[in-house]
């Protein structure tokens, strides 16, 4: 089953490779991994999307907790939570019809066009991964030049929070 695990870890060089090294050394799946410093500059927040049986997920959380650089951890999956991913898509738009159609699709998906050149648009879109997938499907008529996805970030709804 797919799980989203969020962790706070020491914002130190090497911390990221300890986490990614753990996944490769123990043969765990890793679907996406995002990381950035938090409002507390000594801490980074990482979101890992992984999958496996209950037993494997239990091992993953235990092994992550065992890493000295991991300060706190939460498996968001059993909690009500929000997950978001951001995507930037560069599409080729050569004529007015194409430009109009791209704009219309972007509006339907509540995205933004953030860069315009003679023959290209860069469209920014945020949402659940499946929404981003649908948008790419909807864009099938356009020559897509580049797709950049951020990987999933997640946060629990309500009172549940991952903090020190």
């Amino acid at each position: 089953m797919r799980h989203i695990i969020s962790l706070l870890l020491e914002n130190e060089s090497g911390a990221l490779s300890r986490v990614s090294g753990l996944f490769s050394a123990r043969g765990y799946n890793i679907e996406s991994l995002t990381v950035a410093p938090t409002d507390d500059p000594s801490l980074s927040r990482m979101t890992i999307v992984t999958s496996g049986s209950e037993q494997i997920i239990e091992q993953i959380t235990k092994q992550l907790n065992k890493l000295i650089d991991v300060v706190r951890l939460i498996d968001l999956t059993p909690h009500r939570h929000i997950e978001r991913e951001m995507m930037l898509v560069k599409v080729k738009v050569t004529d007015n019809t194409g430009r109009e159609e791209a704009k219309r699709l972007t509006d339907i998906f509540r995205g933004n066009i953030v860069d315009v050149s003679q023959e290209t648009y860069v469209i920014e879109l945020t949402g659940h991964g499946s929404k981003l997938d649908s948008f790419l499907e909807a864009l099938q008529g356009f020559p897509v030049m580049e797709v950049v996805r951020s990987g999933v970030m997640g946060i629990a709804r309500g009172e549940v929070a991952l903090h020190l």
Partner: peptide
């Protein structure tokens, strides 16, 4: 002493 040893190989 190591929680990760619990139910790692055998439930």
């Amino acid at each position: 002493v190591d929680p990760a040893s619990i139910s790692k190989n055998v439930k």
